[in-house]
Structures are given as structure tokens and as C-alpha cells.
Design a protein around this nucleic acid. Structure first.
Lengths: 320, 320
DNA sequence: ACCTGCTATGTTAGCGATAACAAGGATCCG
DNA sequence: CGGATCCTTGTTATCGCTAACATAGCAGGT
């Protein structure tokens, strides 16, 4: 028991005793067993985080924001990636819950019925991010992808573009991508532009290369297209370079816009007009919310459900 | 006990009993507590993985390879990121070991003395990746970054370039980056090219933007430079676009080469010559090795230390 | 009928920590 | 100097599960 106290801070223990213990600990290479501690104290120090892909800088930024927010709290991320599949998400939710996380952060608001039930019954704070679900499980930190895409369409419209196309993946697996397409369609309709030009190509998330191929399809199918909105900056970059290879001037002959404000968009030549979403901020604020929520659980005074809207903005650059 | 058996497979239990239990489990929303199970069975199902950055597609690929290799084994990644600092690595090693992982995978072969000691005394399989440490803790899955950079210099030399510069970060924090610079220097010396041109700019890992700024410095300091090797593809892309902004023809006036074969290098226009390293493969093979090693531990027949060299190759593209 | 061998379930103990309480000793103050 | 108070250390029970062993019941062969 004294050892247990010595290895934690905040416990009253004689300096001399602590030194002796520390020396022994160092000598033996003893390392505390946290799974035993968790069992006893009912605090695992885990926060489960599910993202679609570990390999996407947007979600990596969110994870970083979360990590930073949790710095010093003794909480550790338990990351899982769903591969954009809600079935895989369901599996992951269950396997995460077995580890008794103190909170769980998921990406998006669409889940399998069982996945949703697991979240609701988990008895821990739940945060849905990157979306504004119509019916949230509890807390939300995100923005409307549809509205953001609408803003981008309006921006292009103001710049004089009318024949605006949209490039995205083939399925609704990526719900945020699907929302963006929806926003595109809504905005086009609202502006009286009824002739939408949509290319669906590749399994989401679509790559740079696929963005290029999709652009080729777009100009083949609608040679008169004036601007292309791409579901993400990666595909936008692919589309841009495809234009360069074909010697199609951007933005003069065709304008290109992306989504996400990846570093590549500000660095490419020409730079790419995009929608900046505060990925890091989503993580950061989720982390802060989550700390308050966990605190509330511990004090047996659960906090009320919160919806935090993060900012997005159209970032005008050279490509559109 | 019967419930415990029902929820695991492989145990002999009557189908009828199992069904009854499953029904109750579903109704109650019961989820097994794995931390208690781990304490009892001494198997946590964790594999600790430390990477420099969660935000680098190379390491993300390695993590994906690991995840894929561990699929179905009941093992789960516990990811930590060190921010390229061995001091942070030391902290992470300790906090990971508290979770009693069944194996630990670290990036690189350089650790703090205490970090190294913790790894050695951990009593679990240890794999160092992405490097070939002079004195490995135990298992290694990687390649020589210095040799790979040498190969790239030789490639440029064969193409006729002589005044070859190197762009990297300001410190040795990124040991792989430092090794690449070392390889550059060695190869230059071996080819009788004594006039090295090295620009150190920005805290590793350097970004696209910093790559561009470094290139500007390079041509300012050595206007006669014919080729630039960049410590990573990201900085190479930044260097490329900086050239495009300055209307410097690539590769005619200056050639550019990167390292890592990120998607951007094959997609940019012109495409970027780089060194392909099998990031995914490093993860995949680490995972396979680790499964064998864990198996060995369980059977009390530890496997011998292994060093798996992964392949790298210079990928000739348009920029050099 | 008896023993063997199998399957299905039950019992007991213990994993390694912490919560909660107990107790010994020093300190302080009137 | 005695009792209150604080600081430090010790004791006991428990967290929720699984390993290991025990037992009950049944089938099958001789």
C-alpha cells in the first residue's frame, strides 16, 4: 500500500520512505500494472476514438487535437479505424467498450442500429464529431458538411462560374463525402443551376490519382464544364495535375476547388481554393468537452448534452 | 464461469446453455470487462506501437500494415506518438509498459539510456523499425536510410548531375533524416564530389512549405546547384512548387528528388523522383514477426533475435 | 453392472492494484 | 501533562474475470 502511494502523487508519504521505494523501484525495473489498478479504481485512463482512416491527415489532425487536449489529464487515446464502414465501427465500438474507456469519440453520426445502442447504453460520455447528426447520441462537435459545400458552390457562382461539376466517390460509405455532394446539389438547385455534373469514381476516400481520372471523365462527359468541386483536397490535387498534364489552364479554362484545406492546397502551384475545416480544433474541443463530461460523471452530476459547432470557411486561392 | 466460457470460443459448452446466456447478454447489454480478464489471464491483447508522428503518411502506412497483420489475432494496437523526441519516447515506453502490452514496436534505434533499459527489461518482444540500429535491442525490421540516400546520390550522379544539394531539418531529432544526410555526404565523398551543399531549415519533420523556403535558400547560397535531394517527399514537393513559382524549369535547370514515395510524388506534375520504402511492408512484417515472437513467449521458447531488411529502391520519375 | 472416458458445469483461488478504514506515533496547544 | 490533531503506515476487502481443478451426468464397451 505504501508503495502504491509512493508511486502516485498527491498522497501523503514521508520523503525518506518515498526515496527508499523509488530506489528499489529503479533497481528492480518495477513498472506499475495499470490493468490491476484500473480494475480496482474503476478508472482505466482510456478514451476510445474511432476515425475512418488513420491515413488521412484531416483525421490525424483531429487525433492530434484530442491528444493535445488530453495532455496531462492521465487519459490516453485508444485509436481504432473503421475504414469508412459502419459495420466495422460497430465491431470496434464493442471491442473498445470491453476495455472500459472513460469516454468514446466517434466520427460521424451514422451508425448501425446495434452500434448506436451500444453507444447509448455504454454509460460513458459519447461524442460524435465531424458531422451534425439529425439525432445525436449525446454530445456533438462538428459542422454541416452539406452547408460547407453549399458555401463553396455559392463562392464559385459569385466568381462567375455556372457549369460546375462535382467529383466524389462511388458510394455513400463516406457519409461526409455524401453530405458534401448533397450540399452541392442543393446549392445548385437554389441558384437555379439545374444541370448538375456529377462524377462518381473510386471507393471512398478517393485518392489523388482517382481525382485525376475523375476529372478526365468529367471533361469527357461534359466538355463545357467550367469548374470542378472535388470531395477532398487530395482528389482536387489529382484533378489539378491531370489538367496540367493535359495542358488545360487552371483556373482559366477550368477552375478547381477542394475540401479540407490540406497542406498541399496551399503549397501547390497554382494553390487550390478549398474549404477550411478546423480538423485540429474538432479534436481539441472534443477533448475539452470530454474532460468536462468525465469530470461530471465522476461527480455523479452528468453534464447536459452539448453541440459545439466548429467553424468552416471558403479559402479563396488561385485555382478557382 | 459458464458465462465466461460462453463468451469465448473454443470452450466446450452446450448449445442450449450458450443460447440462453447470449440472450441474457443481449438483453442486459452486458459487455465483458477485458481489464479484469487481462489481470486474470495475464494477456492484455495489446501491442504498443510508438511512431514519431501520427500525421505522416509513411508511419500511418506502417501502422496500417501492423493492424492488418494483427487482424484476427485478438491483438490491438496501442499507438503513441513521440513527436520525434527520444525523451518523449522514454515517457511513452514507460506509460505503455504500465498497460502490460504483449509486445512493443518502436521507430528507430536511438533511445535514451533509460528508455533502452526499459525496453530490455520489459520481458516482452521488442521490435525496432525503420532503421538498422548498430546495437539492436532485439528484433529489427527496417533498412539503412544512409544507404538508401547513397543510392539516390549515385542515381543522380549517373544522370550526370554533379552539384547536388541536400535539404533537411535543423536538428538530428529526426534520426532517419540525419541518416539520410549522412548517406548523402558519404556518397558525395565516395564519388569525389567534395563540395556538399546542405541546407538545414525548420524543425523536423519539415513541411512542404519549409521545403520551398529551403530550396530558395539553396539556390541563393549556391546559384550553380544542379540537383536537390530533399529529406522527404513533402519537402521535395514544396521545393518543386517553389521552382514553379520562380519559373525555374524542373528538371532542366534544377533536378529535385525526394524520399519516401508518398502518393504526391507520383501524382505531381512533373512527378518526383524518390526513394520508395515499403512503409506498409515494414508494419506488416513487424506484425508477423511479433505474432511469432509472442507465440514463442507463450510457449516459453523465445525465438531468436531477427533482423528483417526491407527493400528500398530509387524510383526514377520526371523531376530528376 | 462396472469401469472408462467424455462433456458440461461448478468451485475455489488468485491476478495486482486501490478504497476505506484502522492504528501508531509525533506534534501541538492550553 | 493530557487530549486533540495530523501525518504516516498498515490491514482488509474487493474490483471482474479466468486458471485449475472438482464433480456430476451420460454414453459406450465389456
Amino acid at each position: 500500500m505504501t508503495v502504491s502511494r509512493a508511486l502516485r502523487d498527491g498522497a501523503s508519504i514521508a520523503a525518506e520512505t518515498r526515496d527508499k521505494i523509488m530506489k528499489a523501484v529503479e533497481q528492480l525495473g518495477y513498472v506499475l500494472d495499470q490493468s490491476a489498478g484500473s480494475l480496482s479504481s474503476k478508472r482505466t485512463g482510456f478514451v476510445a476514438v474511432l476515425v475512418p482512416s488513420i491515413n488521412n491527415s484531416n483525421f490525424a489532425d483531429t487525433a492530434r487535437g484530442l491528444t493535445d487536449a488530453l495532455q496531462g489529464s492521465g487519459l490516453q487515446l485508444l485509436l481504432g479505424y473503421t475504414d469508412y464502414l459502419i459495420e466495422k465501427e460497430e465491431e470496434l465500438i464493442e471491442s473498445m467498450l470491453r476495455r472500459r474507456p472513460e469516454a468514446i469519440v466517434v466520427t460521424g453520426g451514422k451508425h448501425t442500429p446495434r452500434g448506436r445502442k451500444l453507444l447509448e447504453k455504454a454509460g460513458i460520455p459519447v461524442i460524435e464529431t465531424w458531422d451534425l447528426p439529425p439525432k445525436a447520441v449525446r454530445h456533438v462537435v462538428g459542422f454541416s458538411n452539406a452547408e460547407a459545400a453549399e458555401a463553396l458552390v455559392r463562392y464559385l457562382h459569385e466568381k462567375g462560374y455556372r457549369k460546375i461539376g462535382f467529383i466524389g466517390g462511388t458510394s455513400n460509405r463516406d457519409t461526409r463525402g455524401a453530405d458534401r455532394r448533397l450540399g452541392y446539389e442543393r446549392a445548385m438547385a437554389a441558384l437555379g443551376l439545374m444541370d448538375t455534373r456529377i462524377i462518381s469514381f473510386g471507393t471512398p476516400p478517393i485518392s489523388m490519382k482517382q481525382g485525376g481520372e475523375a476529372l478526365a471523365q468529367l471533361i469527357e462527359q461534359w466538355p463545357d464544364v467550367e469548374a470542378a468541386i472535388c470531395v477532398s483536397d487530395l482528389s482536387a490535387f489529382g484533378a489539378l495535375t491531370e489538367c496540367q498534364r493535359r495542358k488545360i489552364p487552371v483556373p482559366n479554362r477550368i477552375a478547381i476547388a477542394g475540401f479540407g484545406d490540406f497542406e498541399i492546397s496551399s503549397c501547390s502551384h497554382p494553390s487550390i481554393t478549398t474549404v477550411g475545416v478546423n480538423c485540429y480544433d474538432i479534436g481539441r474541443r472534443s477533448g475539452e468537452l470530454l474532460l468536462r463530461a468525465i469530470e461530471g460523471e465522476r461527480a455523479r452530476r452528468p453534464i447536459a448534452a452539448e453541440t459545439i459547432m466548429t467553424q468552416y470557411s471558403v479559402i479563396a486561392r488561385d485555382s478557382a
